[in-house]
């Protein structure tokens, strides 16, 4: 396009208005810079636009300039210390390092948490073991006591044969120490008491037959419900074991007699 056509196209007017796209705007600026004729045309267009726009002004109050300068000074004072945000590669390294560090911290926290859990598990296992040991040593103590008791020269060993009707092939071993009023019963050969029933031990005196409850086998001290130990046993001539409803009875139910023996 020659200079004349360029001028006639009307592009320069729009260029001075500033309504072309940024790309076109830059292109025209380049063309104008190279061509003095275009340059002169642009100046001429600008002159008429300056006149036109000035003519539409209602008149700027002179005091306005003072106000602008005042604002500008206070603004420029705030404006001066420009903070430049640096985005160099180093900042990316910084971010990467920060993320790695954060990841590391999280991993350590997780590790710590896991270890805490392990410690808790081990502690509770230890407690269980301690309880087991205590139980075992208590049991050993009891057994030792029983053994000593059985070995006492004043202790008599009795066999309470099983009742032919209810427990034909069983028997109960009793160790009776009348001086200490103690009785030890080994009922390991008796059948298990059914649900809701309980074995009751009786002290017997004959002529006349007088049964006196010593206790229930469910409540008495025992080692795994096999060997029972009773204290404060009254003077007896024999012992009997009956099956009674849970809680025991006042008088023995002789139909449910399981073992009976005399001294």
């Amino acid at each position: 396009m020659n200079t004349k056509d360029y001028i006639e196209s009307g592009l320069l007017e729009l260029y001075v208005y500033g309504v072309l796209s940024p790309k076109e705007q830059a292109k025209v600026a380049q063309d104008v810079a190279k061509d003095p004729e275009l340059q002169a045309e642009v100046e001429s267009i600008e002159t008429i636009l300056l006149e036109l726009s000035k003519a539409t002004s209602p008149g700027v109050k002179p005091s306005l300039k003072e106000s602008v300068v005042t604002k500008l000074r206070s603004k420029s004072f705030q404006h001066k210390p420009k903070v430049k945000i640096m985005t160099s590669n180093y900042s990316y390294f910084g971010w990467a390092a920060a993320i790695l560090l954060l990841g590391g911290i999280l991993w350590l926290l997780k590790l710590n948490q896991d270890l805490q859990n392990d410690i808790e598990v081990v502690n509770s296992q230890l407690e269980t073991k301690e309880v087991q040991i205590t139980k075992a040593s208590q049991k050993a103590e009891t057994l030792e006591e029983l053994l000593l008791q059985m070995g006492d020269p004043s202790t008599r060993k009795l066999t309470l044969p099983g009742n032919k009707l209810n427990a034909p092939n069983s028997s109960v071993i009793a160790f009776y120490t009348d001086e200490k009023e103690e009785l030890i019963l080994d009922i390991s050969r008796l059948p298990e008491a059914p649900e809701g029933m309980v074995y009751q031990v009786w002290s017997l005196k004959f002529e006349p037959l007088t049964p006196k409850s010593i206790g229930l086998l469910a409540e008495a001290n025992s080692t795994e419900n096999r060997v029972f130990r009773f204290k404060n046993v009254p003077e007896s001539e024999g012992f009997g074991i009956t099956l009674e409803p849970a809680g025991g009875s006042e008088q023995p139910n002789l139909k449910q007699l399981y073992a009976l023996g005399t001294i």
């Binding site: 260029y15 940024p22 600026a29 306005l64 602008v68």
Partner: peptide, 24 residues
């Protein structure tokens, strides 16, 4: 008008004769 001249002062850096007229 006041805002515009404050911008002119603060953003004078952004004007470049390569891109066009100062009046534009």
């Amino acid at each position: 008008l006041q805002d515009v001249f404050i911008k002119v002062w603060n953003k004078s850096d952004s004007y470049s004769a390569d891109k066009g007229r100062f009046f534009t």
